[in-house]
Design a protein around this nucleic acid. Sequence first.
DNA 1: CCGTTTGTTGCGAACGATTCTCATGAGTAA
DNA 2: TTACTCATGAGAATCGTTCGCAACAAACGG
Lengths: 140, 140
Amino acid sequence: MSTTAQPKRNTWQREAVRAALAEARGFVSAQQLHQRLRDGGSTIGLATVYRGLAGLAESGEADSLQSPDGENLFRSCSTQGHHHHLICRSCGETRELEARVVEEWAQRVGAEHGFTDMEHVVDLFGICANCRASRGAAGA
Amino acid sequence: MSTTAQPKRNTWQREAVRAALAEARGFVSAQQLHQRLRDGGSTIGLATVYRGLAGLAESGEADSLQSPDGENLFRSCSTQGHHHHLICRSCGETRELEARVVEEWAQRVGAEHGFTDMEHVVDLFGICANCRASRGAAGA
DNA sequence: CCGTTTGTTGCGAACGATTCTCATGAGTAA
DNA sequence: TTACTCATGAGAATCGTTCGCAACAAACGG
């Protein structure tokens, strides 16, 4: 049911959100994106950014995760379908990962416990080589 | 500095939060916990529940994660140290997992990309056997 | 046991992110 | 072009969480 896409209209706002998201290198929050668009001269509304982002996330064009602060972060996704992320805690650099091992592990563990319809959240955070080199060792 | 615990006082409120959390089977939100305590006749304040939970989470006695709604959920943690969770999307039943495979994978992937100081977020969601039996197949 | 000291509590206000409302504006089809 | 709808945008409304502050009570010394 409802696998068919609803009739969405083509608006410059939707495109602007998509573009701005693609432009952003790491994960960005809706508010950040809205700010950037505004800074870029756009008159787009905050609510529209939220709506656009939600749409992109739903259609798989964007990926969303929650920051530790409880904010929703989005990122333009090149890899369609399921994948995970490796994110630099320092510079925000993000890489998409495939994780066959983890997929299988998740399935197996789920099955062992009698769980079905498994989903999982797997994200890796670390300090990338660049940041490590330029910062040496900076504490928390 | 400040690795040493701050001088915390022993109050019945703190104990009440701890007890209520231990009582709860799955993950609970601060608000839920507060409600239960109130229902139980306690006059504890909401802010205190928040403070108590934050304290428990920090000391490792409780584990916290964010619900898809952006709420902070807490759970009393028996397993000290690092571990993951398998959570039933339907009834909230939660099991603590060890995930050697995943730990190793995370380290390896991080290393391959030149990342250090790896951390990761890994949580599994599914429908447990019980719920599956009693609900058959309920769509989204 | 009593007074002092100072971290805790609890209330309500403040805050911040997200969603909703609704009148207006712009795609789309005829 | 005209009509029909859905999308937009501004601000209000929501909801979870944190803050500020005065009263309180746990730990301590005498």
